[in-house]
């Protein structure tokens, strides 16, 4: 079991020009821009976003619909390419990577939890958990696999197919899959969006635990303030820009900022 690299204790927000040492940063983006569509229908999804995601931290990205939070996550997760700016995963800048290199990067360095349709329906829970490893032709570390399976509490359900699992169980399998290859960073896109509050809380506790116990870096897109309260840090996006940031958030503080953003949005509209 690895010792979690704790973030530096003295930790004032650093200016973008002097980023923290690479070892501490799981991923960072610099001057990111992305637009969709053309002419009248042009949508500026990201407008000069600079952000760093530190190792061993649980970060939430929040913002109203259309704020660009999903686009940001897709860039960081090597699922999409920016129009402008840089995306670094560890020491790798993904802008110039081809499809093959991007795929390998996702396979080796990144774990995913999506809101829905997380599992391959033809595979059992166990096969789904091991999918990224088996695609890469790697053998799982049995101790680590056992630890992950026990953490997510799915030992009895390993042989089941996704359609035999509840929504919460499916998301837990997805979390196990994201963790089992020990990626540099795990991205979760509204992982609790389709779950009832109890199942949702379980999934969030799992992600929190991965950060606390194993130093896993997790980034989660959400618009649920309760979910955001599980995180170390919340980044707020509006109209494709980072507009605010909160450390050690609680539900009320998050709600307050979101309300303020919504009001500002309505005032400017």
């Amino acid at each position: 079991m690895t010792v979690p690299p704790t973030p530096a204790p003295t930790d004032p927000p650093a200016p973008a020009a002097q980023m923290t040492a690479a070892a501490d940063v799981a991923a960072r983006v610099v001057g990111l821009r992305k637009t969709y569509g053309r002419g009248e229908a042009v949508v500026r999804a990201l407008d000069d976003v600079t952000l760093e995601l530190r190792s061993g931290e649980f970060t939430a990205v929040m913002g109203p619909s259309g704020s660009g939070k999903s686009t940001l996550m897709h860039m960081c997760a090597a699922l999409d390419r920016p129009d402008e700016g840089e995306v670094w995963i560890g020491d790798t800048e993904i802008g110039r990577l081809g499809d093959k290199a991007l795929t390998l990067l996702r396979r080796e360095e990144i774990g995913f939890v999506f809101q829905s349709f997380n599992l391959v329906p033809t595979l059992t829970a166990e096969e789904n958990v091991l999918l990224p490893l088996s695609i890469a032709g790697r053998r799982p570390d049995p101790e680590w696999f056992d630890a992950v399976v026990d953490t997510v509490g799915l030992r009895e359900r390993l042989g089941h197919k996704p359609n035999e699992l509840s929504g919460g169980q499916v998301q837990r399998v997805a979390v196990a899959r994201a963790l089992v290859s020990r990626p540099r960073i795990v991205f979760a896109d509204e992982p609790t969006g389709n779950l009832d509050s109890r199942s949702g809380a379980e999934v969030l506790r799992l992600l929190r635990g991965a950060v606390d116990d194993h130093g896993q870096t997790v980034v989660m897109v959400t618009h649920d303030p309760v979910a955001a309260a599980y995180c170390d840090r919340v980044v707020f996006l509006a109209d494709g820009r980072v507009v605010d940031e909160l450390r050690a958030p609680d539900r009320d503080a998050v709600l307050e900022i979101m309300t303020r953003m919504t009001d500002a949005g309505e005032a400017s509209a």
């Binding site: 093959k100 795929t103 995913f112 349709f117 695609i135």
Partner: peptide, 16 residues
Amino acid sequence: TREIGLLRAVGLTRGQ
């Protein structure tokens, strides 16, 4: 399509 997207996201290469 969605399943293929998922497989590609978790690291299945085009060749695979």
